[in-house]
C-alpha cells in the first residue's frame, strides 16, 4: 500500500535551479552593496557590515524551522509523505543556517565585546535549536522503517519547535541580570537596501535548496516504499 511519493507533479528541477541561481545573484549584489557602497556606521565603524549577512541568515533560519514545523504537522494530519520529504529538507536547511548563524554571531561578538560568546538570548536559543534539530536529523538516520521515521521525527520536531519560545524566555530571564548586550539586530543600518537584498537573496537560495532537497527525499522514499517486483518481471 505504498503511495507513489512522486505522484502529484512536484515542481521540476528547473524551478529549483532557477531559485538557487536567482538567490545567489541577489546575495552577491546585496553583499557587494553592503561591503563597499554603504557608509560606515556611527558607533560600530565598519564591523556592523557583518549584520548584512547575519540578520538575513537569522530570519531565514527561523523561517526554515517554521516551515519544517508546518510540514511535520501537515504530515501527521494528512499522512502524505511529500510532507515528510519537505520536513526533512527544511530541518536540514535550518540546521545549516543555524550553525552558520552561531559562527557569524561569534565573529560579531569578538571585536565588539571582546569575547567569542556573550550569551545573547537570541543566539543562545539558536545554538539550542541547532543541537535539537541535529538530534532530529540523527533520529531520522537511525530509524529504518520509513513510516516510523516520518512519524517520530515529525513528533520530535513539533516538540522541539514548541520549546523554542520557552528556551528564549528562560535564557533571557537568566541573562537579564547582566548588561543587555546589543546584538546585530538592534544596530540600525545606515542603509537598509543591502539588508533587504540579502534577506531575499538567502530566501530564494533557501527556497531553491529546499525544493531540490525535497526531491532527493521523495526519490529516496519512493525507492524505499516501492512494492517488490513480481517474479515474472525479473
Amino acid at each position: 500500500m505504498a503511495p507513489s511519493v512522486l505522484a502529484g507533479r512536484p515542481s521540476g528541477p528547473g524551478a529549483g535551479y532557477a531559485l538557487l541561481a536567482f538567490g545567489a545573484v541577489l546575495l552577491a549584489v546585496g553583499s557587494y552593496i553592503g561591503l563597499f557602497v554603504a557608509p560606515s556606521e556611527s558607533f560600530m565603524g565598519d564591523v556592523y557590515r557583518i549584520m548584512y549577512v547575519h540578520v538575513p541568515t537569522a530570519w531565514n533560519a527561523l523561517l526554515a524551522f517554521t516551515f519544517g514545523f508546518g510540514s511535520a504537522v501537515a504530515f501527521l494530519l494528512k499522512g502524505d509523505f511529500k510532507w515528510d520529504a519537505r520536513h526533512e529538507a527544511a530541518v536540514e536547511m535550518g540546521v545549516v543556517l543555524a550553525g552558520l548563524l552561531c559562527c557569524q554571531g561569534a565573529i560579531w561578538a569578538r571585536p565588539t565585546w571582546g569575547v567569542w560568546w556573550d550569551w545573547d538570548p537570541r543566539l543562545t536559543t539558536t545554538a539550542v535549536m541547532f543541537f535539537a534539530f541535529i538530534g532530529i536529523l540523527a533520529l531520522r538516520r537511525f530509524v529504518e522503517d520509513p513510516v516510523k521515521r516520518a512519524t517520530w521525527s515529525a513528533v520530535a520536531t513539533i516538540i522541539a519547535y514548541v520549546d523554542v519560545p520557552i528556551v528564549y524566555f528562560s535564557v533571557r530571564w537568566w541573562n537579564s541580570l547582566h548588561q543587555m548586550q546589543s546584538s546585530p539586530e538592534t544596530v540600525s543600518a545606515p542603509f537598509l537596501i543591502p539588508l533587504r537584498t540579502n534577506a531575499f537573496g538567502i530566501l530564494f537560495l533557501m527556497a531553491g535548496l529546499i525544493t531540490l532537497r525535497t526531491r532527493i527525499a521523495r526519490l529516496r522514499l519512493s525507492q524505499e516504499m516501492a512494492p517488490p517486483l513480481p517474479e515474472a518481471a525479473r
Binding site: V128, A132, L139, A156, D163, I166, V167, F169, S170
Partner: peptide, 8 residues
C-alpha cells in the same frame, strides 16, 4: 534528543 529540549 532530550538535552537541548530540557535547557529551560
Amino acid at each position: 534528543l532530550l538535552f537541548p529540549l530540557v535547557v529551560p
